[in-house]
Design a protein around this nucleic acid. Sequence first.
DNA 1: AGTTAAAATCGAAACGTTTCACTCGATATC
DNA 2: GATATCGAGTGAAACGTTTCGATTTTAACT
Lengths: 326, 326
Amino acid sequence: MVSIKDIASKAGVSVSTVSYALNGSHKVSEETAARIFKIAEEIHYVPHAAARSLKKRQSNIIGVFLTDFSGHFYGDLLQGVKEGLNRKGYDLIVCSGMQSHRLIPERMIDGAIVLDETFSDDELLKYANQGHKLVVLDRELDHPNINQVLLDNKAGAAMAMDYLLEQGHDKLYVVSGPVGSYDAKQRLHAVKQAIERNPRLEFIEINGDFGKSSGEAAGKRIADEYDRTAAVFCLNDEMAVGLYHYIRHHTSLVVGEHIHLIGFDNIEVSEYIQPRLATIDYSMRKWGAFASEQLLKLISGQPVEHERVYVTLIKGESVKPVQGNA
Amino acid sequence: MVSIKDIASKAGVSVSTVSYALNGSHKVSEETAARIFKIAEEIHYVPHAAARSLKKRQSNIIGVFLTDFSGHFYGDLLQGVKEGLNRKGYDLIVCSGMQSHRLIPERMIDGAIVLDETFSDDELLKYANQGHKLVVLDRELDHPNINQVLLDNKAGAAMAMDYLLEQGHDKLYVVSGPVGSYDAKQRLHAVKQAIERNPRLEFIEINGDFGKSSGEAAGKRIADEYDRTAAVFCLNDEMAVGLYHYIRHHTSLVVGEHIHLIGFDNIEVSEYIQPRLATIDYSMRKWGAFASEQLLKLISGQPVEHERVYVTLIKGESVKPVQGNA
DNA sequence: AGTTAAAATCGAAACGTTTCACTCGATATC
DNA sequence: GATATCGAGTGAAACGTTTCGATTTTAACT
C-alpha cells in the first residue's frame, strides 16, 4: 500500500513535510507543495482512514441508526441528514441491527442519530457518559451529550381528533401502536385527552403495531362489529392503508361513507389510495436536517436546545361529515 | 480513553498478554485470562476500531452503496445482505452519494456491494485494481476482484411480453427506463426481441426514467391518443403505478379493460392497487444474500462464479384477454 | 539434580498518520 | 555586527492495537 512515506522519499523531503503539505498547511513552500501533490497523484496516494482517525481521534463520519431497513419511510429523512452533513465535510452511514451498535463505543463514528428501538435508554446513556454525542429521534433523554429532535405527536393527534369531531363523529376507533414506541405513546396520550374532553363519544381502542397487517386485523374487527358510521384513527398511515385495503376488498362498507379514516405520517401511498387518506403530515427532510444540525452543534460544543418538528393536517375524502346516522 | 494498556497495568501483565487474552488465544492461562476479562469489564474497555483496523488491515465492515435512499425498494435487499454478513462476523453500512465513495479507497471497508449509478465503470475498475473487492449489482464488469449478481431481466421481460401476447394484444406500449440503467437496457432489449418475432404488433416506445411521474406522463400520452385496447409494459412498477394513477384519476379509461398494464419488480404497492398489477417478481432478499455470499468469497480468496437471480411472472387483473376490439 | 519440552509471558516493532518542538539559514532591526 | 524574526523544513513521539521472536516459568522425564 502506498503511504505518505513513499511520497516523502520520492520527493526527498520528510514525512512531516508531506503531511503538512497534503493538509494545506502554509508552513510549506508553494513549490514543494506542488511537487508533493504531483507525486501523490502519480503514485495514486490515498490517505488511510484508520490511521488518520487513530491519530486525530475523529473519523468525520456520523451514523444513523434505524430499527430496520424496511422503510420507504425514511428515505427523505436520510436525505435531510445527508445534506446537512455533507456541507460540513461529514459523511453519513446508515446502520441497523444490534451488531452495529458497536460502531459507537468503538469510535468508528463521531456521532450518532438514533431512530432505533433496539437501543435501550440505558445503553444510550452509557455511550453519552463515555463522551459520545447523540441525537435521538424516538425518545426523551436528558444528558448534556444527547439532544433530541421530536415530532409534535401530541399536536398532530389532537388535530386529527378535532377534525374527526368537527365532522360530527361520535363513534371512534383508535388503532394504537407498538408498546415500545415513543411516537405511539404520545399520539395515544393526546387521543385520550381529547376523549376526556368529549365524554359523549363512544370510544374503542384496538391494539396495533404500526404494521400493515395489524391494520388489516383492525379492519376486520371493525367491519365485523359494524353497526353505525364509525370514525377510525390509525396511529400511523401504514396501518390505515392495511385497514383500508381490508375494508375495500373484504367487506361492502365504503371508506369515506361508513368508515371514516385518518392516519398519521402522510406516507406516499396515502396519496394514492382512493379516497385520499386524511392524515397528519410533517417534513421528514426537515426532521433529518434538524437532527444533523443539532448533532454537529453537539460535536463542536455549541449550545443546543431541543428542536421540535411541527405537523399539519391533511384533509382527505377518507373522512367526511356524518350524515343521518342509523 | 481506556485502552489495553490500562488493563495491562491494572492486571500486572504486559500489553501483549492482554491482547492475546482478549482475542481468545490459547497462549494465555485460564486464570490470567479470567482476571484480564474481569478488569476489562470493570473499567469499561472497548477496543478502538481504528487502531485495530490499522494493524490488522481490515475493518470487518462491508459497505453497500445505493444511488439514493429514496427506496421502499431496497429494504429487503439490505436485509438479505445483512443476514449473510452478520453470520460471518461482518457488519454492514449503507452509503449513498459521491462523497461516500471515498470509503472504498481509504480502506474503511473490506468490500463493497454496488447498486449505484454514481459510480462509473472506470472508477470501480480502478478500485478493483487497487485490490478492493467488489460485487456489482447493476452492471457487468470483468475483473478478478469484481463479481456480479445480476437480475435475469431478459427472461423477465420476455415473460411479460409472452403474457401480454398470449392474451391476444396487438397494440403495445413500452415505457422505458433511464438511459444509464443496466436493468432498463436489458429489459428493453428483450422487449425488442419479442417485437421482432411478432411483426404484426403495433409497437410504441415511450421514454421513462423509472420515476412515478414519468409513468404519469406516459399515462397521459396513452390516454390522449387512445383509439383501441392497448397493452402497456412499464419497465418498472413505480412507473406502472404512476400510469395507473393517472389513468384512473384523469380519464374514463379503465385499467384491465381499455388499458392492460404490466410492470416489473413487484413492489409493495403493486399488490395494493386495484386491479392487482401484473408484474415480474424476484426475491430481493435472495439478491442481497447472493451478493454478500459472493463478496465474502471474494474477500477470502475462494473461487466465485457469477450468480443470477431468477424471476417469475405474477399475473394480475390489470391484464386481461382482449375481447371484441374496436 | 540435570536436561528438555511445553506453556506462559514479555518486549518491541509495526501499521500510517499528525503534530509538537526544534534546527537551520536568510532576511530584517536596531 | 549582534540579535531577533521569519520561513521552510525536520525528527520523533504518539495514537491503540497486533504479532513475531525471545525469554522466563513450570512440569515432565531420565
